[in-house]
Structure formats: C-alpha cells, structure tokens
C-alpha cells in the first residue's frame, strides 16, 4: 500500500513538459495559424540565443551559483565584434573566434573570482554585469552599430535544410547533455551542487570532503556559461544585423527564468540542458502566441511576470517535495530480509 512516488511528484518532475503541452494546445485553439512547421521553426530560431545561454546557465545553477553577467557578456562580445567588422573591416569568419574568446574571458574572470577568491557568485557576476556593459558602451561610444549584410547570412543559411541557429542549438545541447551525463566534470558538478542538509552554508563542503577539486569545477562552469553567452550573442547579432547599446540588457533574467522553468533548481544539484532548452522554448512560444493573437501590449509584462512567478513557484514546490521525500523513508529495505 505504500507507494513510491505519488502523482504529485510525477507531475512536478514532468511539469515543464506538461506546461509546454498546455501552452501549445491553448495557442493552437486560439490561433489556428500557430500550428505550422514554419511557425515552429520560427520559434526555435528566435528562441535559440536564449536557449543556448540558458544551457550555460544550467551548469551554473547546478553548482548552486548564479551568473547575472550573461546579458552584458553578450553585449560586450557584440560590441567588440561590431567595431572589428565595421571599423577594422574584419571578415565575419574572423570575428566569431574573437566573440567566443570574449565570452570565455568574462566567464573565466567570473570563475576565477568565485573559485579562487571565494567571492559570492551573486555579487561577482553583478559586478561583471556592470563592468562588461560599461566596457561595451565605452567601445561603442554608446552608439548603435549597423552590421553588414554578410553577418545576417549566418541567420539565413539553411545547411541540410535546417536554419543554422537551430543546428547550432542542437550541437550545443547535445554537447552539454553528454558533458553533464558522461564526463567527470559533469559528475563532479552534480556532487558540488548537492546539498545534503538543505543548509546554504554547507554547499560544496560535502563535495570537498569527497575529494573533488571544487575550484577547478567552478572555473569551468562559469567559463562554459560565458562561452554559451557568446554563442547566443553571435546568433543574436546575425538576426538583428546590429549592435544596440541595450543589447542583452535584462536578458539574464529571462535566461534564468527559462532555465528554472526547464526544471533546473536554484538550490543547486539538479537540472538538465534539455530542460533549459524547453524552458526557453516555452518563453518564446508564449511571446509568439501573444504576437499571433495581436494581444494588447499591456498584457505582455503581465505574462512575463506570471512566467517568472511560475518558474520560481515550480522550483520551490519541487524542492519542498524532495525534502519531504528525503524525510520519509517509506521503503522497506530490500537488502535486509
């Protein structure tokens, strides 16, 4: 009579998927044009920058950290790329490695400050949020840069009949998922974020006792987040063909919300890259739906608020459920008989 998992737990585990299904059904009923392959591809393309950055954020959140600087990193990478292309006449192909290096650099800086100097992630990345945006504004002199059409081609080409942003997203997703599941780094990361007592101050202590090199893991985690932000920036630039001074401003919150919506916990120790993509898709699908039904513009902030609230609520419910499960030892041990 004692069940192992209640329907509630199952529902919470698959909540992102359920929610996505509901949203799709609702929108399909509201606007018949919604359900088309073209529109779905369109949503995927539009969601890809946030989705890729959210994959990076997944790593950070699993480590029970946070990275607020991703939006500014996207801007800084874009600003440097813009100046190189427009003023120095660099080819697009030459600029891409530079953007990746910028993202990696900001990520490594975050990681170094957090891992080696043991500073609080929230404050460190808040500082880099301001610094990176400041540096970007200085580089662009607060002016919008219009990029040549060659940059836009990145967003338009369809190798294998699939838009390039979607291909990039798939490659990043598969890489991230295998790194999380199959590498030493991934396993150590999950251990690092796991927190046996539910006590904030003990985060990582268990992992250190287990002989894990915490700083090495943290350094890589933030580097990955920075790198993913840069990839997201490349796609954004290709879509907009411009770098505006408020590029990526506030997008870190959307990225974190997408990640949490996809089932990654703000408390650390849990999450998947696939979930992050699903979360980003959910956010973009809702926006697409609002555009489709030509909703009242005042409606958008309400929906955004509801999404963030939902994400946090979901996470907290899941966390409570899990704590409860940890309390209850509702199994008759099978090893003893």
């Amino acid at each position: 009579m004692i069940q192992q998992r209640s329907i509630g737990v199952l529902a919470l585990t698959y909540a992102p998927l359920l929610l996505y299904g509901l949203v799709v059904l609702f929108l399909a009923a509201l606007a018949p044009q919604f359900l088309s392959v073209a529109n779905f591809l369109n949503i995927l393309v539009l969601a890809s920058p946030v989705a890729i950055a959210a994959i990076g954020m997944t790593f950070v959140l699993i480590s029970a950290g946070i990275d607020l600087s991703v939006g500014s990193t996207m801007f800084l990478a874009g600003a440097i790329a813009g100046r190189l292309v427009v003023d120095a006449g660099w080819p697009v192909v030459g600029v891409i490695p530079v953007m990746l290096a910028v993202g990696l650099g900001v990520g490594l800086l975050n990681g170094w400050l957090i891992a080696r100097l043991k500073l609080v992630p929230f404050m460190v990345t808040l500082a880099t949020l301001f610094s990176a945006r400041g540096a970007g504004l200085w580089i662009t002199e607060t002016r919008a840069i219009n990029l040549p059409d060659s940059f836009r081609q990145l967003a338009v080409v369809h190798p294998l009949g699939i838009p390039l942003p979607i291909l990039i997203l798939v490659v990043v997703l598969l890489t991230a998922e295998t790194v999380l599941r199959r590498t030493v780094l991934g396993k150590h990361l999950y251990a690092l974020g796991y927190n046996a007592q539910g006590d904030e101050h003990e985060n990582g202590r268990e992992a250190a006792k287990a002989g894990i090199d915490i700083s090495a893991v943290l350094l890589r985690v933030y580097a990955i987040a920075g790198l993913c932000a840069a990839v997201g920036s490349i796609i954004t630039l290709a879509q907009l063909a411009a770098v505006s001074p408020n590029l990526g401003q506030g997008i870190e919150l959307e990225i974190i919300a997408a990640t949490v919506l996809g089932g990654t916990s703000l408390f650390g120790g849990r999450g998947t890259a696939g979930g992050a993509v699903l979360g980003a898709l959910l956010v973009e699908t809702v926006r697409n739906g609002l555009n489709l039904v030509n909703a009242d513009p005042y409606f958008y902030p309400l929906i955004t608020g509801a999404i963030i609230f939902g994400a946090v609520l979901l996470d907290s419910m899941r966390q409570q459920r899990l704590t409860l499960l940890r309390h209850r030892n509702i199994r008759i041990p099978k090893a003893i008989g």
């Binding site: 030493v184 396993k187 150590h188 251990a191 046996a196 992992a207 287990a210 002989g211 894990i212 849990r270």
Partner: peptide, 18 residues
C-alpha cells in the same frame, strides 16, 4: 552519510577517482 543523493550508487562509490 557523505553521499550524494543526486548521483548513482556507482558514481558515489568512485566519485573522487572516477
């Protein structure tokens, strides 16, 4: 118990030297 609930039994057994 210094075990990581979010990892498998096998992973916990070899965590420091996977």
């Amino acid at each position: 118990l210094n075990l990581f609930g979010n990892l498998s039994v096998a992973e916990n057994l070899s965590l420091a030297e996977l």
